[in-house]
C-alpha cells in the first residue's frame, strides 16, 4: 500500500479536505475566502503570493489555498496541485473582456495530471453587479459542457453579499466526501 493511500485514510479519519482556489486576478478569490471565514473584506489588497486558511465546516477541516492570479504568478500555480481534492475556479462575471483569457486558463488546468480526480466548482462571482453575466452565460463562455474529466458545478454568487457561497462550498464538500470519505 502506498503512503499516499495511507495518508488518504488518515485524512478520512480527520475529514481533511484540500481546496485550491484559482482564477484570474481581481476575480474575488481572497474576498470569498475572507467572507466565508467571517472576516472584514474592506481592507483586502491584491494578493502578492498566496494565502492559506484552515476552516472548520460541517465537521470537515478545509485547507483552502488562495493563490494570486496575476500573469506573473500563474506559472507558480502548479506548485500547489499536489493532493488537491477540490478546485474552486473563481470568475469575475462582470469582466466580459477577459472571459476568453479565463476560459483558456481554466481548460489548461483541467489537463493537468495532478489535478485529475479533483472536483471542480466554478464560482460565477460578483452577481450583485448589474452588468454581471448570469451563471448560464459564464457556463457557455467557459465551455463548461465540454468538460468530461471532472465532476463540476457552476454556482452564481457574490462574495460581497455572501449570497450562495455556502451552497457552492457545501456541494464541493459533498462531492469530495462521496468519493474520498467512504469508509464510515
Amino acid at each position: 500500500m502506498g503512503l499516499l493511500t495511507i495518508l488518504k485514510k488518515m485524512k478520512q479519519k480527520e475529514k481533511e479536505v484540500r481546496l485550491l482556489m484559482l482564477g484570474l486576478d481581481n476575480a474575488g478569490k481572497t474576498t470569498i475566502l475572507k467572507k466565508f471565514n467571517g472576516e472584514d473584506i474592506d481592507k483586502i489588497s491584491p494578493t502578492l503570493g498566496f494565502n492559506i486558511k484552515t476552516l472548520e465546516h460541517r465537521g470537515f477541516k478545509l485547507n483552502v489555498w488562495d493563490v494570486g492570479g496575476q500573469k506573473s504568478l500563474r506559472s507558480y500555480w502548479r506548485n500547489y496541485f499536489e493532493s488537491t481534492d477540490g478546485l474552486i475556479w473563481v470568475v469575475d462575471s462582470a469582466d466580459r473582456m477577459r472571459l476568453q483569457d479565463c476560459k483558456r486558463e481554466l481548460h489548461a488546468l483541467l489537463v493537468e495530471e495532478r489535478l485529475a480526480g479533483a472536483t471542480l466548482l466554478v464560482f460565477a462571482n460578483k452577481q450583485d453587479l448589474p452588468g454581471a453575466l448570469p451563471a448560464a452565460d459564464i457556463k457557455k463562455g467557459l465551455d463548461l459542457d465540454e468538460i468530461t474529466t471532472h465532476h463540476w458545478l457552476i454556482q452564481g454568487c457574490s462574495a460581497v453579499t455572501g449570497e450562495n457561497l455556502l451552497q457552492g462550498i457545501d456541494w464541493i464538500i459533498d462531492d469530495i466526501a462521496s468519493r474520498v470519505f467512504t469508509m464510515d
Binding site: 452565460d137 457557455k140 465532476h151 456541494w171
Partner: peptide
C-alpha cells in the same frame, strides 16, 4: 458511466464562445 457529472442537459450544442456583442453588452 460518468456518474455524478453535474450539468443540466442542454437542448442544442452551445456556441463555443459568446458573440462579440454579448461580451460588450455591459450596462454602463
Amino acid at each position: 458511466k460518468k456518474k455524478g457529472t453535474v450539468s443540466e442537459k442542454v437542448e442544442e450544442k452551445p456556441k463555443p464562445v459568446l458573440e462579440d456583442e454579448d461580451v460588450l453588452l455591459a450596462d454602463c
